[in-house]
Write a protein that binds this DNA or RNA. Structure first.
Lengths: 323, 323
DNA sequence: CTGAAAGCGCTTACAG
DNA sequence: CTGAAAGCGCTTACAG
């Protein structure tokens, strides 16, 4: 680990002042004599100079980095969200720091506070709890920029960008009913997160006699298997299972199949998030496609230019062999 | 987003110098009059003061943060590695920045260089390619601290911590042969990464007539499914499949089962990494348990205290129903 | 035990 | 167009 060249070294080698060297290298001011610029560039190259990001950030009062905090990076849906956000940030010249909250509001609060010690200008967060996440988020708003993605918390004073859950549930339900499925079972998570609450409300407002619900403690493949066992223990199977997360659908599907249930003949299964998972299983699973890039781009926009607006983007139904 | 209080504000409110306020708050010097300390703490509390990490880092010439670069966060094995590293770092008071290289040496090089612009004191990297990753790693060594985890690259001048692949393959093979499995097929990835090369060498040195190999372009569930199709297209099934990644084992298992193969009766299947995946499938899959915490802790140690040592830690065999 | 001063490495008004 | 100077917010020898 060699000693890193500083701006001073470059200026010395090029025979100019640090001001001029900085103007050339940081590109903040185009008005520099071409010959001097050439010398600065040559010296910088020769010394392998890289501006010290810490010093630059202190002076500029901005690191150019943003944090993203998701409930779990074991859920491919959030991985996809992180990817989209990172890509949006990168193409705008920003870096991204990732953290996860383990689906726990207390850990989440600790991570949000922790980002205060980190080198970020702001934070995008997927709140774990509608009721409990607001406090830490509001605290963070006091010292940084914050935006909520995919879920929102009551009491948070910052913006939000997510999918339109009501429209999403409606699209899946319409599709299932249009293909003749009558008894539809809603498989979701407890209403702790806003997304779960919105999806459940959307379902209930459209439920018909014979429909039902299974609510699980969390979104995971294991929870999907658990749901399958509950279905199998009932007298008869429903016509379709509307899962509100892809991991639930995948867990459900594999357990049903292992127990001899034929999908989609005996029962249709739908996912929600549109992750790659759904195309890897057999049969591929019908689900929504969330406009991830648009969500990520808009979230970044709210971070750069804060407002308290809530944005809901429409998902698109992708019908596959499972329904 | 309110204006953040600075050390100057705290000192002013407490009626002391910035030096004294800093000594109390940063805890760098215990010799402060208790009464003054009390006043500083009270003022800090009242103003909601948090030291500006950027300024602190510039002065200390250290951010206290470390980066970790893995081939993919879609592979639960690397997620587990990241978790262990993050936990080790956190408990030592360090933060962690995560990036992924998409299993591509060029992207990897870009990310390694990118960490030079990031706010980290060093970088732990899982090199994607034994032959090609060394250049970027060596470049990074010139300006920061670097350690290799799980895999190593030729030409890198830094330390390495990983599992003992030779011992691991030997343990699985011994177990399979001891339980009467004769024709064993090795299912691995191309030898681009050092782990793959070491495992394949370990297998070959112990292979017996009737054993075989299937080499895939990468470690993924999809690759595991592909391996199953290749096995099924052969005249007869082997007695056991020794998969060198859990994702391979899971993909293989599900496809075999779908095609009516009974595991472990007709064929044993073993994984390698010991991720949670293996206990979620039916039957649960035999694999090694890698000493993740020890690997992570030692890697962090090499980052804090650089040496060029290569450390190989012994994995432990965990026998489950799949073999 | 305490405070004034220097300095980490940059960027950017400001004066020339 | 260029350079001397100030300053971002800290920490830490140093002198007292």
């Amino acid at each position: 680990m060699a000693v890193r060249a500083t701006l001073h070294d470059v200026a010395l080698a090029a025979g100019v002042s640090r001001s001029t060297a900085s103007r050339v290298l940081a590109g903040t001011d185009r008005n520099v004599d071409p010959e001097l610029a050439r010398r600065v560039l040559a010296a910088s190259e020769h010394l392998g100079y890289r501006a010290n990001p810490v010093a630059r950030a202190l002076r500029r009062q901005s690191t150019g980095n943003y944090g993203i905090l998701v409930p779990s990076i074991r859920n491919p849906y959030f991985v996809q969200l992180v990817d989209a956000f990172t890509e949006a940030a990168r193409s705008a010249g920003h870096g991204v720091m990732l953290a996860e909250s383990a689906d726990d509001p207390d850990i989440e609060a600790a991570r949000i506070d922790g980002f205060g010690e980190a080198f970020v200008d702001g934070l995008a967060v997927v709140p774990t709890s509608m009721a409990r996440s607001g406090v830490a988020i509001r605290r963070a708003e006091g010292r940084s920029r914050v935006v909520q993605i995919d879920r929102w918390a009551t009491g948070a004073g910052c913006g939000f960008v997510g999918v339109d859950n009501d429209a999403g549930v409606a699209a899946v339900l319409d599709h299932l009913r249009a293909s003749g499925r009558r008894r539809i079972i809603y498989i979701g998570a407890e209403q702790e997160a806003s997304a779960g609450a919105e999806r459940l409300a959307a379902f209930r407002s459209r439920a018909e006699p014979g429909d039902g619900e299974i609510l699980l403690p969390r979104f995971s493949t294991t929870a999907g298997r658990e749901a399958a066992h509950r279905l199998l223990s009932q007298d008869s199977l429903p016509d379709a299972a509307l899962c509100t997360a892809d991991v639930l659908a995948v867990g459900l599907l594999s357990t049903l199949q292992r127990e001899g249930v034929r999908v989609p003949e005996q029962m249709a299964v739908t996912g929600f998030d549109g992750t790659d998972l759904l195309e890897l299983v057999d049969p591929p699973v019908t689900a929504l496609r969330h406009p991830m890039e648009a969500i990520a781009t808009r979230a970044l926009g709210l971070l750069l230019n804060p407002t308290e607006e809530h944005h809901r983007l429409a998902p698109e139904l992708v019908v596959r062999a499972s329904s």
